[in-house]
Write a protein that binds this DNA or RNA. Structure first.
Length: 636
RNA sequence: GCCGAUGUGGCUCAGUGGCAGAGCAAUUGAUUCGUAAUCAAUAGGUCGGCGGUUCGAAUCCGCCCAUCGGCUCCA
């Protein structure tokens, strides 16, 4: 007999060889039905595993992340089995669970199309209905290689060959289908209920451009049909918030065929942009920054000096002026360094914080362009801080505070990643270590938790990246703080120290919005186009009920404008319901309905886009309320 | 850049070899209306571009461009 201790503290005896599933069934049929896998003595395992030793058992359902991963991973095997049945010459690559589903990469002479989805799903449902037990098998490395060679699964052979010499290889079998897999898996194919194939994509074998392009099928699965439907509904909702769609509908910005990757901002989009920049300038002045502007085109020689030529050339645009070679800037730092060098600096001036709304151009691969999120020309809210080595930690902490203030204002939660020295970089390992440690120390002193991204730093220094999470739970990299010992060296920056000698300053590159364009894309989706009043292109629209109310509407309008509000009046002879509908669709924060009653009382009838009809208010009363909402940058 | 899909009026889309369509938007007229769509009329497209097949191409073929979903890369 073996003894199994459960999570609730109870302990039970089972005959040796009883599987975890059988054991669970004897405890509770319901629990057994809901369990997908288990953690036994701390390690993930199949429910089909027989008991040979005492231990602590934790059952994993779909609610647990690891249970969900197992569920999706088993789903991917079912999809692979279905594909193999339909197109037997298909070779299997890998098929992991991902965030909201799973995928499988195939190499097949058949080119998959969305029309194949129904057939694959039908075959998957056959496999599910057959309820094949999913059986784990183990074999030595050599035998496993032979096994997959015989079956013509070259990718699997390559995977095994990369495993250690003495590795014990595990395989999982369901019906006629066998796959190399570490597991664990659900006990049988019948556990999987609601499946849906989502999309097709090309994907390089092992993620490298040098390798073959495989065909990837993305899919998802849930234990209940209702959960799948809910997921699909949310996806539809997310599509409605797509900034590309909202940008066009609300007249904010557009990307035309004539300018791929070069967004065009319309008047209403410019209002949002200008408000963001105004706020930025105000906050940066408070935080002790000065502002500069450096040229978009600078001599090619400068880019040799900065290291961009060696490390960033493929992303740059070049041009010729008269006989000289010039480059369009992909970053603002070299210009910032030139600005620093225009005068002699004393240690007393440092830290010197110089901000720049820098328009940069980068040649991005055509396939990566995506609305405002990924463009070829964008404005970085850049700043370069020149400082003494002993000021590093405080300056980094200052930037972190500033970033926190900005993101908090929009209601964005965020997480932080620390990126270390990449392969293609300048400077010695020692300098990189000093810089990386400084960033780490600042984060620790701020008590911030962070993830480390090895090899992801800029070519001149390590960085802290701020990834913000939007209302749809997606994350976007925006802010970054980069510590740089290289550029000051390359540009021979100096300051005069207390000792009267020249010394080398240290430099921080940092952005908060990241790129104004991307940030506008993110907030458009985050607010679903319903921007807080301070950012709304139109803050108030007045809706007179009939033509005889026009005079009053125009009077109210001029009072709103005099109060500095962005207001307009809808003087078309349409029904009130129609005007309201249009105002709502334009996501205008406040609609003011005015008719006989309002003229009589000298009031406006206030309708908020989210809260609906708020009843009647005096004009002055309304003006004060909305001005306060704007001033405090309330999200409503 | 690579894989796949898509491209028809301002927007959303129908039209699979035989006279380019609908709804919304726009314009004009009527309507004077109280919290999410009043009615009618009018106008608007060399069907992404170039070439080919055909008596005839939005439709079939080729190349190019752009977009979408991914991969790789990134603010």
């Amino acid at each position: 007999m073996v003894s199994v201790k459960l999570k609730d503290g109870s302990e039970r005896q089972f005959p040796e060889g009883t599987t975890l599933l059988q054991a669970t069934e004897s405890i509770s049929k319901k629990l057994a039905k809901e369990s997908l896998a288990a953690r036994f003595n701390g390690s993930l395992t199949d429910l089909n595993r027989p008991l040979h030793e005492d231990g602590v058992l934790e059952l994993l359902g779909f609610e647990e992340q690891s249970g969900q991963d197992v569920y999706r991973h088993s789903s991917s095997h079912i999809m692979a089995q279905a594909v193999k049945r339909l197109w037997p010459d298909t070779q299997l690559a890998i098929g992991p669970a991902i965030d909201k589903g799973f995928y499988y990469d195939f190499d097949s002479t058949h080119t998959f199309t969305p029309e194949d989805f129904a057939a694959i799903e039908a075959e998957m449902n056959n496999i599910i209905k057959a309820d094949y037990p999913i059986i784990r098998k183990e074999m030595p490395r050599e035998e496993a290689i032979r096994f997959f060679k015989e079956r013509g699964e070259d990718y699997k052979v390559e995977l095994i060959e990369d495993l250690p010499e003495d590795a014990l290889i595990s395989l999982y079998q369901q019906g006629e289908f066998v796959d190399l897999c570490a597991g664990p898996h659900v006990p049988s194919t019948g556990k999987i209920k609601a499946i849906k194939l989502m999309s097709l994509a090309g994907a390089y074998w092992r993620g490298s451009e040098a390798n073959a392009m495989l065909q990837r099928i993305y899919a998802t699965s849930f234990p209940k049909k209702a959960q799948l439907d809910d997921y699909l509904y949310k996806l539809e909702e997310a599509k409605k918030r797509d900034h590309r769609k909202l940008g066009r509908e609300l007249g904010l910005f557009v990307i035309v065929d004539e300018g791929p990757g070069f967004p065009l901002f319309l008047p209403k989009g410019m209002i949002i942009r200008n408000e963001l920049e105004n706020f930025w300038r105000q906050e940066h002045a408070l935080a002790g920054y000065q502002e500069i502007r450096t040229p978009i085109i600078l001599s090619e020689e400068l880019w040799h000096r900065s290291g961009h030529w060696d490390h960033y050339k493929e992303n740059m645009y070049f041009t010729k002026i008269d006989e000289g070679d010039y480059a369009v800037k992909p970053m603002s730092c070299p210009g910032g360094l030139l600005a620093y060098k225009q005068s002699l600096h004393s240690y007393k001036e440092l830290p010197l914080r110089m901000g720049e709304m820098g328009l940069v151009h980068r040649h991005e691969l055509s396939g990566v362009l995506h609305g405002l999120m990924r463009v070829r020309a964008f404005t970085q809210d850049d700043a370069h801080i020149f400082m003494l080595p002993e000021q590093i930690i405080d300056e980094i902490k200052g930037v972190i505070n500033l970033i926190d203030r900005f993101y908090g204002l929009f209601g964005f939660p965020y997480h932080v990643e620390l990126s270390t020295k990449p392969e293609k970089s300048m400077g010695s390992d020692e300098v990189w270590e000093v810089a990386t440690n400084a960033l780490e120390q600042a984060l620790q002193e701020k008590g911030m938790s962070y993830k480390i991204n090895p090899g992801d730093g800029a070519f001149y220094g390590p960085k802290i990246d701020f990834h913000l999470r939007d209302s749809l739970d997606r994350t976007w990299q925006c802010g970054t703080i980069q510590l740089d010992f290289q550029m000051p060296e390359r540009f021979d920056l100096t300051y005069i120290g207390e000792d009267g000698e020249r010394h080398r300053p240290v430099m921080i590159h940092r952005v908060i919005y990241g790129s104004i364009e991307r940030f506008i894309g993110i907030i458009t989706e985050h607010f679903a186009g319903a921007f807080p009043a301070w950012l709304s292109p139109v803050q108030v629209r007045i809706l007179p009920i009939t033509d005889r109310h026009h005079d009053y509407a125009v009077q109210v309008l001029s009072r709103l404008k005099a109060a500095g509000l962005r207001a307009e009046a809808d003087l078309r002879s349409e029904k009130t319901g129609y005007k309201i509908r249009e105002g709502q669709l334009q996501k205008i924060p406040y609609l003011l309905v005015v008719g006989d009653k309002e003229i009589e009382a000298g009031s406006v009838s206030v309708r908020h886009r989210k809260d609906g009809d708020l009843g009647s208010q005096g004009v002055e009363e309304f003006i004060q309320a909305i001005k306060q909402e704007i001033e405090e940058k309330v999200i409503r």
